[in-house]
Write a protein that binds this DNA or RNA. Structure first.
Lengths: 71, 71
DNA sequence: ATACAAGGTATGATATATCATACCTAAAAA
DNA sequence: TTTTTAGGTATGATATATCATACCTTGTAT
């Protein structure tokens, strides 16, 4: 698996879980205390996100970080 | 869970899996095409490692990235 | 029509992950 | 003793994640 494929997988998982909870990007970004200009590219798989950022997103989405790596 | 706690968890999992496979830090760093001056602090939980770096390590250790987030 | 919300892009600044290299110690092997 | 080997630290350079802000489009609601 390439890095790019991993990034896209992570992004799609975040988007899927976020929508399943009915949250908007703006809401999650605000709760994570992060900028949507960072969250949007993460969801689109354009960014090599850090573990710390994944943790912040996971806590707002009320899931374990592991969920973001699932196929 | 704090960021620091996550970093330490990731680092301990990497160290544990690496040793279980009988690999040295130098071996894994070389196979990952990364510097041990980066891998050592990652194993010690001092660094906010990126998803891409976790992927490279996971492939050398022949595990899924998810393993690094387990308790 | 007009305001607002949601997703998205662009850009410059700042923080920091990673690289590259050199050096150190302790333990094991020659 | 001498030489490796493994783990570890220090430092400066480079790449890039994240911040902060402004702006755009589309759809929806007022």
């Amino acid at each position: 698996m390439t890095e790019k494929e991993l990034f896209i997988r992570i992004g799609k998982n975040i988007t899927r879980i976020r929508k399943s909870k009915g949250y908007t990007i703006n809401h999650v970004a605000a709760e994570c205390d992060m900028e949507k200009s960072n969250l949007i590219p993460i969801e689109k798989g354009r960014i090599n996100v850090t573990a710390g950022t994944l943790l912040r997103i996971a806590e707002v989405l009320e899931v374990d970080v592991k969920e973001f790596f699932k196929i």
